[in-house]
Design a protein around this nucleic acid. Sequence first.
DNA 1: AATATAAATGAACACTGTTCAATAAATCAA
DNA 2: TTGATTTATTGAACAGTGTTCATTTATATT
Lengths: 205, 205
Amino acid sequence: MGISDRKEREKEELRDSILAAAKELFLEKGIDKTSIRNIADKIEYSPGIIYHHFRDKNEIFHALHQDGFMTLQNKMEVLNSVRNPLERLKAMGSIYIRFAMENPDMYDLMFIKEAPMDHLFDSEHDDWKEGGGSFNGLRMTIKECISQGYFEGHDSESLSYLVWSAVHGLVSLNIRKRCEVIELEKRNTIVQEGLEAFFKILDKL
Amino acid sequence: MGISDRKEREKEELRDSILAAAKELFLEKGIDKTSIRNIADKIEYSPGIIYHHFRDKNEIFHALHQDGFMTLQNKMEVLNSVRNPLERLKAMGSIYIRFAMENPDMYDLMFIKEAPMDHLFDSEHDDWKEGGGSFNGLRMTIKECISQGYFEGHDSESLSYLVWSAVHGLVSLNIRKRCEVIELEKRNTIVQEGLEAFFKILDKL
DNA sequence: AATATAAATGAACACTGTTCAATAAATCAA
DNA sequence: TTGATTTATTGAACAGTGTTCATTTATATT
C-alpha cells in the first residue's frame, strides 16, 4: 500500500540526509572530529536517530567510501575509448592520481583509513566489493597488455598489485605528509614527476 | 652538583617508563585505544604526570616513531657490505619490506599514521629528520646507480620517490587491509610477489 | 475515540585528552 | 633540627566522545 511506500521513502531520505551531513562535516573536519552529535545537530535530530539507520560510526563512513568509489568509477569511464592497453593503463594511472590529489580526504577514506574496512569485517559479508571492482579494471587492462606482448615474463596478478602499489604509494605518502623528505623546490610536483618516471619505466618494459 | 644530576636522571627514567608503557599498550591495542589513563595506570602514576614530560599524546607517539626508525636504520646497516648499487637497492627494498611485515604496527606509525607528523607541525622545528635520514640512504643509492649507467634518462629525486612509493604501496595496502581484492590463493604472498615483479623491472631498466 | 505500531528522543554509561589549583615531597638555608 | 623554598605529583574538573535503551511522541489502524 501507499503509506508504507511513503514511509520507506521518508526513511531513505533521512538516511541520505545523515550521509550528506556526515560527508560535509568529514570533508571540513576529518573523521575523528566528525561526531555523531555533530551530525545529529546538522540534520536537527537527536543523536539516537542515527543508530536507527546505521549500526555504528564505521558504517556511516563505509557508506561514504562507497560514494567515493562511484565518482572514481565515473571518472574511469573515459578509458573505454582508449584502445591500446598500455595507453589505457597510463591514462588509468593519471585519472587515479588526479582523483587522489583533487579529493585527498575521500581518497584517504577509500584507501587509507581503517573505518570502512573495520565495518566490513564487523559485518557478515566481508568482501570488499568497491575495491574489488576497481582493481578488476586494472587487472583486465594488465592482462590485455600481457596478451599483446607487453610485460613479458610477468604474472598479471602480481604486476597489477605492483602497479596499484606504485600509484597508491605516490599519493598516499603525499596525503599523509611524508613528502617532507623531498627537496623543497620539487616537493609540490613530486607526485606528478614520480608518475612520469613510472610511465618512462612502463615504456621500457 | 650531584643532586640535580640524579634528578635529571630520574626524570629521564620516568620519561622512558612512560614511553615503554605506551609502546607496550600501542603494540597490543593500537594508538586510539591507548589512553593517557591506561599509560598512567601501567606505570602507577597519575595521568597528570604525563603532561610534565610530553606536550600531548602526539608527542608520545612521535617519540615512539623515532624508536622505530632506530631499529629500521640498524637493519639497514648490512647494506654497507653490498658494493653494487643496484644490488644494494634491491637489498634495501627487501629489508624495508621485511621490517614492515614483521613490525606492521610500528611501520604504520612511522609511515601511515597522522600522529607523529601532526606533532611535527605543532612544534617549531618542523622538518622530519627521521624520514629524511632514511630517504637519503635511498637517494644516495639511486644516485650511485645513475652515475654507474643504470636508469638512464631518470631524475634521481623523482625515481627515488617512485621507488619508495612502490615499496610503501606494497606494504601499506596490505597493512590497511586493502589486499582483499587479491585472489585468495595469492593473498598471503602478494607483497613478496609484488616485490619480485619490481626487481624484475629494475633489472630490465 | 481507542488501540496498536512505528519513530524519535534524551538521559545515562563509560570512556577520552587536557588543564591546573592544591597537595606532597624533597632540597636548601639558618 | 627547624623553617622556607623549590620541585614533583596529584586528582578533580571540563568539555567532549560513541553507544544504548527505556520512555515519550507521532502516526496509522481498527
